[in-house]
Structure formats: structure tokens, C-alpha cells
Design a protein around this nucleic acid. Structure first.
Lengths: 343, 343
DNA sequence: CAGTGGCATGCAAACGTGTGCACGCCGGTT
DNA sequence: AACCGGCGTGCACACGTTTGCATGCCACTG
């Protein structure tokens, strides 16, 4: 029916009129049924269901003053790290009758600010992932709005960190136990909390050992640029490469293949995020992060408590887990300089 | 400030009071500035900006009766096909001052129905991608609501199709020109419009030629299950494999590697969606789809015209483009005639 | 039988914005 | 000088829902 008109949605007053009750009664049948006679509730709900009544969120938000909406801000929806989080957030939010509003900032600070203002005005809480905002603006924001950060470790704010630290330490320990003594860390874009944490974890785990570490970064974080950085990566003759994420690790593996270096016989590779799983050859050892748990928890935290109160500062770090696969193996005997001391 | 209170947002009446004008005037300064003296508009806008005023979307939606919201429903946010579309939709929507509400159905029909009802109630239009709803429900829906479908070809509805048809035909022609005569089509999940279109295109392109085609499907559509379907895929001894999407194509390539079959010397492979680009070895020939264009166009179409009127039925097919890469080559001379290696 | 208390429901105001209508003012025409 | 038209602004109501308070009814108690 091309020329047809959009059917107007039934409202509470229409149902009330048809049933000969007051609109308040209909309202209460949904929001405070215990105040009503059970039989009345039943009658109203039946009539509402029959007419396909759905409460108008705008009217409700306006009346109560609290929009049942949670804003979720991410740098880039198309980055495969975020969709599973978004999905998880949606699922738990809908259980408490909340709507999740998604927005992406494009990694641009100015845009992030605008988005935050716009979203804050229409949601009761904000969840901001991987914020690029300067610290001063963050704290100013947190005492005006209910906001929870993911992967941004700012003191005196509510935050959840999807951490790879413990797992990376275990990964390094494992590599040491396999005889590796020459490491390369191939980092990602500068400035993100994740890059700082991961690099820090590797450095720390190697502290006090006799092992060698060479670090570099692929600013773009792409597969292609990683392939192009061959010289840099192989410069120090590492036997183990730890990558900032799986995309970079994938680049490293293919780079090694291309140079005729076998994985893991000559060089072991460990990724992070565990997004590629079995799709590399050989299957990539990686660190599975608890991003989905973080999203769930985030929504849970912001939905509880009085919406008129700010969120209490807290720091929650969810530790990921090392998933060992075929890209990890013993260090090549021949490359190991004389001292093969057990730990 | 942990114990602090959420700052109340400034409203139109506060600004009006401070400036000694009526609230209508302030309202008009934003929605109908041409009715006001330019100087008044300027004064009000300055005061509003200074106080950080942002129009309350709920009040506005309630008052005008039109929520400036577009619902976008996809089967699965985490499916890499959709995030770029979501992103594109958001970008064009924000230019016309619309908010895009995302929801995913999990591929479940019951859930899809619930989501549609919920979203329809609070948005002025719906964009539904890859709907699994039965035809009868679709047409019933379209004469109650403003809804536009993506990748669902239902007559008498407004729809946009992200098509691979023409490009697939060209791809098959190209393979024929390269001497290929034995084809395999490895399909994806049944029931989707895309699967029907792609399989149909391949069948059609081979019609009237002397070439052989064997078709099968990987119902799960995963890399792992594709690897596991080796026997089925190689049964007819194809020299060219066309896959439903890049994930399956990736599985096929690695499967061939594992069996010592070289690509493209012995078998050529073509994917679809062009999501993996250069990350396979060798880089995968694929069909780049115009999903982003489709999303943009969809938002554009639903935002124009009177919101009280239904969308006019129309059918728009956006044709993708073949991107030829190293997995495509000439058919092997030796294998071409009768002899095939059983596995 | 009057008084009391509790339960079920109605009344009306409020949330913030948009908009049809009315009003006053000013410059120009008759 | 009376009139008119148009421009700029204010008044008041509407949108759909929630909620504090009032009201009526009933059963029970003294």
C-alpha cells in the first residue's frame, strides 16, 4: 500500500477510555501492578496486548526525568574488537529494559567531545571505551555525568580494564621456559591504554632475566604495514615475537613465511585478542580477552543504583587468558648462545 | 566527586526567563529562526551555547509526534559485514539530525518480530537488513510502518539489494576465458537472499557453456567447517572454486594448501565480500560489495519525504565489482581433459 | 451505629518542546 | 487621521506518561 498512512500507535488514554477506567490505572497496570486489584491488572494488560500497545519511551522519559538509555561510545564500530562488546551490552541492557545507543568517534578527540555531549543529554549513563580525551577533560566529565570507562585507567573514575597483563606475563614465562632468550615486541598505535599495558607487561616480565628485548611499533596497526616492517622486526634476530594484536601477529607470520623462516621451529609468535583463532597457518597462539565480560559488567554497573547519583570510582581489571597454539614452540638450539642455564 | 549529584540540564524555559523572553521565542530560535529578528536569534543562541543547552530529544519527539530516530535491524552486529554499514548509516543520519538505533536479531525470527515492534514504536522509520521474516508478515508490516529492506527481495516493498550478480557473472566469464571448465560453488547458510542470488548467478553464467558445475553448502558458514568439507569440495575435481563469502574462500585456500594443491596453479579460488583483502596467501580474488553505499542510500531514502506517508515500493540493486588477485589463474593444461585425481 | 483504617482508583499537575492563534506595534497608504 | 498589512513575539494548549494526593468504598472495631 504505497499511498497508505502510518497507523498511529494506541496510547494509554485510548485504552483507558475503552475500558472505562482512568489513564492512571492503565499506567499503573504496567509500572506498579501491586497497587491494583489483580483482576484489573489482568483486564488492562489483555486489552493492551490486543491493541498492540507499547509504552511511548519519550513520554516516559519526559515524565520520569530518566531516559532508560545507556550511551555506548567506541572509537570505531568497524573494529572487530567492539561488535561483540556492543552485542553483549545490548543483551544485558534489554533485560533491565534499557536501550543502548551506539556512537563512534572515529578516533577523533573533537568528535568524541561532541558525541559525548549529544549522547549525555539523552542517556542516563555513558560507557566510553578507549577514550582519547585528555585527563583534565575526563575528570571534569565524571563529576557532571554518570560515566564509566573501558580501557582507560584514569584515577578516581569508574573503569573496567580488559587486561592482558597477567596472561602476557605467563606467556613470556612460558617462552622463557621453552628456552627463548631473544624477544621482539611489535606494538600497535601509540597512546592507547592497551599498548601501554601490553608493552609494560612484556618489559616487566623480562626484568631480571638475562633475556634480550627489542620493541618497535606499527603505528597504523595494519597487516600490510607489518609485512613492510620486516627489517625492523628481524633486526635483533629474535626467536620469539610478541605482537600487540592478532592482526599484527598475522602480518608477522606471513612475513616470516615469505622469508622462508618457519614458525614455530625458528621463531615463535604470540598474538593478542584471539580474534583470528584457527585461521592462520599454523594456528596462532594468542591471548583471549574478556571484552564481552567487561561490556556485560559495565552495563550492570551503570544500571544499578540511583540515577541521580554519580558512579562511585572503582577499578576493575579483567584478566585475559593465554591460548597456546601451534605458533609457540621450543627455541632453536642452534641460535642459543652457549649458556643454557635452567631457571 | 564520588558523592556528587548529576547536574540537571538547562531547559528552554530557564534560558527564556534569564533573557526575559517567552519560551516559544527560544524554541523558535532553533526550529524556525526565520520567524525571529536576526538579532534575537543571535542573542538566544549565544545564551544557550554559554549554558551548554541541548534540546531534549524526548520532549521534542513527544511534542512533534515524530521521533527523529531511525531503527536499523541486522541479524548480527558481530558479523563483519554489518559494522561498516552501521557506521555509514550513522554518518549520514547525523547530518539530517537523526539518531540511528541499532538492534540485532540473532537470526531468530521470534526475536526479530519482538525487536521490530519495540523499535517501530520509537522510530520514524525502520531499515531491516537480511530479514528472515516470512513474506506474509513482511507485507503486513510494510503497510503499517515505514520500512525499507536491505538484502531481501520482496515485491511491492522498498528494498535495496547489495548484489554480486553482475560481478559474479563477469568472474565466471573470466574463469572460462582462462580455460576453466570444471567449477565448484561452495555456498553458505541456506535461506538468505544472498545465497540464492549468488548461486543463481553462477548457475546462470554457466548455462549454455559446456562447463561442469558442482554445488554444495557449508550451513554454518565457518572456516573450520569449510576445512572439514574437503572431500565434498574436491569430489568433482574442479579447477575453479567460487565461494559464497571470503571466510569460506579462506577455508578453501587453506584446505588446498594442506592437501598440497597449489593456488592458483592447480585450482583458482574466488571469494565474495572482499573483507579479507590481502590477508590470505596468496591474496584472495573477491567481489567487493557496495554495502556502505546501500546503507547510505537507505538512510537517505527513509529520511526524505513526509514521515506520515508510507515508503513507495522500489527496487534498487547495487552491483559489486570483481577484484582480481593472485588466487585466479589459468586452468592447468594437464588436468583439463579427462583425468582427475581421486582423493 | 459511628468511627477508623486500608485498599483500589481517580484527579490533576508536571516533564520540555512545538505550534496555531492572537496581539501589539510600526510604517505606509487612502 | 483612520486604516491596513505584516512582522515579531507571547499565550496557551498539546504530546503520553508518571505520581502525589484526594476520594470513595468496604470491612472491621469499639
Amino acid at each position: 500500500m504505497p499511498g497508505g498512512r502510518v497507523r498511529k500507535a494506541p496510547t494509554i488514554v485510548e485504552i483507558a477510555r475503552d475500558l472505562g477506567v482512568s489513564s492512571s490505572t492503565v499506567s499503573r497496570a504496567f509500572t506498579a501492578p501491586r497497587l491494583l486489584k489483580p483482576e484489573t491488572v489482568e483486564r488492562i494488560r489483555a486489552a493492551a496486548a490486543e491493541r498492540g500497545y507499547i509504552p511511548n519511551v519519550h513520554a516516559r522519559a519526559l515524565s520520569t526525568g530518566v531516559p532508560r538509555t545507556i550511551g555506548l561510545i567506541v572509537p570505531d564500530i568497524a573494529n572487530p574488537f567492539f561488535p561483540p562488546m556492543i552485542r553483549a551490552a545490548q543483551r544485558v541492557a534489554e533485560q533491565s529494559g534499557h536501550t543502548v545507543l551506539i556512537a563512534d568517534t572515529d578516533g577523533d578527540v573533537e568528535r568524541e567531545k561532541r558525541i559525548i555531549e549529544r549522547l549525555a543529554a539523552q542517556s542516563e549513563s555513558l560507557i566510553i571505551a578507549s577514550s582519547r580525551l585528555p585527563s583534565t577533560e575526563l575528570v571534569e566529565l565524571t563529576d557532571r555525568r554518570r560515566v564509566l570507562f573501558i580501557n582507560r585507567d584514569e584515577p578516581d573514575t569508574a573503569r573496567i580494564l580488559v587486561s592482558a597483563r597477567d596472561a602476557l606475563c605467563r606467556g613470556v614465562d612460558r617462552l622463557l621456559a621453552l628456552g627463548h632468550r631473544r624477544f621482539a615486541y611489535v606494538g600497535g598505535p601509540a597512546g592507547s591504554w592497551s599498548e601501554g599495558e601490553r608493552h609494560g607487561a612484556v618489559v616487566e616480565a623480562l626484568q631480571g632475566t638475562r633475556a634480550l628485548l627489542r620493541s618497535l611499533r606499527i603505528p597504523s596497526g595494519t597487516y600490510e604495514d607489518t609485512m613492510a616492517a620486516g627489517e625492523q622486526i628481524l633486526l635483533s634476530g629474535p626467536t620469539a615475537v610478541i605482537a600487540f594484536d592478532d592482526v599484527i601477529a598475522h602480518g608477522v607470520i606471513d612475513l616470516l613465511h615469505r622469508r622462508g623462516i618457519s614458525v614455530p621451529e625458528q621463531i615463535s609468535v604470540v598474538g593478542c585478542d584471539d580474534t583470528l583463532a584457527l585461521t592462520t597457518q599454523p594456528p596462532l597462539a594468542s591471548i583471549a580477552l574478556r571484552a564481552v565480560d567487561a561490556a556485560r559488567l559495565a552495563v550492570q554497573i551503570v544500571s544499578e543504583g540511583q540515577v541521580s547519583e554519580m558512579l562511585a570510582p572503582r577499578r576493575i581489571a579483567l584478566q585475559g587468558e593465554l591460548v597456546e597454539r601451534a605458533t609457540v614452540g621450543a627455541a632453536p638450539e642452534t641460535h642459543c648462545p652457549g649458556r643454557e642455564a635452567p631457571m
